[in-house]
Simulated assay, not measured.
Amino acid sequence: MFNSSVPKEDSRDLRATLLATAIDMLAEPQAVAVPSLRSIARACGVAPSAVYWHFPSEAELRSAVLDAEYTDMVDSIEHALEIGGPDTDPLEIAGDAYVSWGLAHPGAYQLLFESNDPIPETRADNGPRLQRRIVDLAAAVDPDDPFSAALLLWTVWHGLVSLRLHKTDWPWGLTPTQANTRLITALKHPAVD
């Protein structure tokens, strides 16, 4: 049992120690978890053993979830690019599709991009496919270094999704689409000093 009677002169030191420990603990990335096998079984109305028949471990289920969600995201971006009109900038289409998917799938987005989990093999296949596509599109902005342009785009797109998911009360002023349009315009027409 814990002793709750801390002498008054020690309470400030304990407060400082508690605060410092909490800050130290926040320095480590926090886990974003797939629901447990038992909770999934309960939601499906089946016995836990039925889940284990298909997914022998939570790691295998997690990997399958990551694979499915990442594939869905990549496919939705590709689909948006395929149906985009000839007068629409492909970078704007890709960015809008990326941001829209992330905002529509907040838990999956966090699991994919806000955790430090290893990349499953099938997601590793889709990762380069998406990366190559965005690098190819970014070549229109920076033909000399399209990878850096693509990385900048992804960083901002990720920020648009992550901040809007976590800071819902902020007065954003711009819709995600407006923000993406301004980003692409700024990249294509940088201010000259």
Rank of each mutant, 00 (worst) to 15 (best):
M1I: 12
M1Q: 12
F2N: 13
N3W: 04
S5M: 11
P7L: 11
P7T: 10
P7Q: 14
E9G: 03
S11N: 07
D13N: 10
D13H: 04
L14H: 02
L14M: 11
R15F: 15
T17A: 14
L19V: 15
A22C: 02
A22D: 03
L26R: 14
P29M: 00
A31P: 02
V34R: 00
L37V: 12
S39I: 07
R42Q: 15
R42V: 13
A43R: 13
V46Q: 02
V46W: 04
P48Q: 08
V51W: 02
V51C: 03
W53L: 13
H54F: 08
P56M: 04
P56H: 10
E58P: 04
R62M: 09
R62D: 12
S63G: 13
A64C: 06
V65R: 03
L66C: 08
L66G: 00
D67I: 02
A68K: 03
E69F: 05
E69V: 05
T71Y: 04
T71V: 08
D72L: 07
V74C: 10
V74F: 00
D75K: 08
E78F: 11
H79K: 10
A80E: 09
G85W: 07
P90T: 08
L91V: 05
G95N: 03
W101G: 06
W101T: 06
G102S: 09
G102E: 04
H105T: 05
H105R: 13
Q110E: 05
Q110L: 11
L112C: 04
L112F: 00
L112I: 08
F113G: 03
N116I: 07
N116A: 12
T122C: 06
R123F: 01
A124H: 08
D125T: 13
Q131I: 06
R132E: 14
V135H: 05
L137N: 00
A140R: 11
V141I: 15
V141E: 00
P143R: 12
D144T: 11
D145L: 01
L151E: 09
L152T: 15
L153C: 12
W154T: 10
T155W: 02
V156C: 08
H158L: 01
H158Q: 08
G159M: 08
L160I: 08
L160Q: 10
V161F: 01
S162K: 02
R164G: 05
R164P: 03
H166F: 04
K167Q: 14
T175C: 09
P176Q: 07
Q178C: 02
N180G: 03
N180Y: 01
T185C: 06
K188S: 13
K188M: 11
P190G: 06
A191N: 06
V192K: 11
D193N: 14
D193V: 11
